[in-house]
Simulated assay, not measured.
Amino acid sequence: MFTSAIDVIRISTLLRHVFVNGKFCKNPKLATADDFFLRGLNIPGDTSNKLGFNVTPANVAQIPGLNTLGISLVRIDYAPYGLNPPHTHPRATEVLQVVYGSLYVGFVTSNPENRLISKVLYEGDVFVFPVGLIHFQFNVGKTPAVAFAALSSQNPGVITIANAVFGSKPPISDDVLAKAFQIDKKLVDYLQAQFWMDNN
């Protein structure tokens, strides 16, 4: 039972707005061409960071019209020997195509096998990273590399393993990490004190 006119207004407002995967769904009658458009994936990303890579996303955050469509895209630029570090997409399978350069790529299967599936890719080659599995790309060439990847979600998410484990806020207990990785607490402290770069 409503206790006031303000409660009625709040409920009415909530019923008019629909969210999918955490994103607001716009009334289709109000959609414009700009809701389905993004410019700039031809522009190289800045790879002058510690890892030598840059991800330029084209997902629902940049293209609102992707909401509910189950697909997105990224451009990945790699400096020579640049690394897109081990990470996972909790809501998407990824298919990657190398446009320029050569990349050593791979993913690790789930427990108990934890088997590495890897390959060196060259221009035009394609590789698939199944949903939720830890994967990486490493530029093995002396020149920059570029790849494009399609993902099976408009909001795939990304969890970079090192960032999540050693860069969490607040930090995971030294005791937990030392035991989990079978390393000394001083090494855990050292790793937690590093600057962990955002992967996306």
Rank of each mutant, 00 (worst) to 15 (best):
P156I: 05
D77S: 03
N84P: 01
R75S: 08
F24P: 02
A147T: 12
V120K: 11
L191Q: 00
V146E: 05
G45D: 12
A193R: 13
S72I: 06
L121N: 09
G22C: 07
A150K: 01
A164I: 08
S102A: 12
F24Y: 15
D7T: 05
R10N: 01
P64Y: 07
V74E: 06
S48A: 14
A193M: 08
F129T: 08
Q137M: 13
T143W: 09
L121W: 10
Q182N: 13
V165D: 02
G157M: 05
A58S: 14
M1L: 02
N59P: 03
V108K: 03
H89Q: 04
R115E: 13
K186L: 14
G106L: 07
F107S: 07
V95Q: 05
P64T: 11
N111L: 11
G157N: 04
V158T: 14
Q182D: 14
R16T: 09
F138D: 04
N27V: 07
N59D: 14
I76P: 02
F195M: 02
V140K: 06
P44C: 03
P171W: 05
I134G: 05
N155M: 06
A61E: 15
Y78V: 07
G70Y: 02
F148K: 06
T88G: 05
F24N: 05
V105P: 08
N155P: 00
G132Y: 04
T56I: 13
L103Q: 09
K169E: 12
P171M: 05
T47G: 00
N155V: 03
Y122P: 00
N67M: 06
K23E: 12
N155H: 03
I172P: 00
R115H: 14
V8M: 05
Q182P: 02
W196F: 12
M197F: 11
K185Q: 11
K169F: 04
L69D: 08
Y104S: 12
W196P: 00
R91V: 00
D189Q: 15
A164R: 04
L73A: 09
A180Y: 00
L96H: 04
T32C: 12
P80N: 03
G101H: 10
Y78R: 05
G45F: 04
A79T: 07
P57I: 01
D34K: 15
N155C: 02
T88A: 15
F166Y: 13
G106K: 05
H135W: 08
T93S: 14
F181V: 05
Y81I: 02
A79W: 01
G101V: 10
T109V: 07
D184E: 15
A147S: 15
G45A: 06
A162D: 11
I172S: 01
L14K: 13
L177C: 07
F2P: 00
L191V: 03
A149H: 10
D46P: 00
P64S: 07
T68F: 06
H135E: 08
A164Q: 11
I134R: 06
V140M: 02
A147Q: 09
K119N: 00
T56Y: 04
V95P: 01
I11P: 01
T160Y: 01
A31I: 07
G124E: 02
T93M: 15
N42K: 10
I11L: 10
P80R: 11
V158H: 01
L38Y: 11
G52M: 09
P57V: 00
Y100R: 15
R16M: 09
Y104Q: 10
D198E: 14
I71F: 13
F129K: 03
V126D: 09
L133V: 09
L187W: 07
L177H: 06
L187R: 10
E94G: 08
K169M: 02
R75Q: 10
Q97K: 12
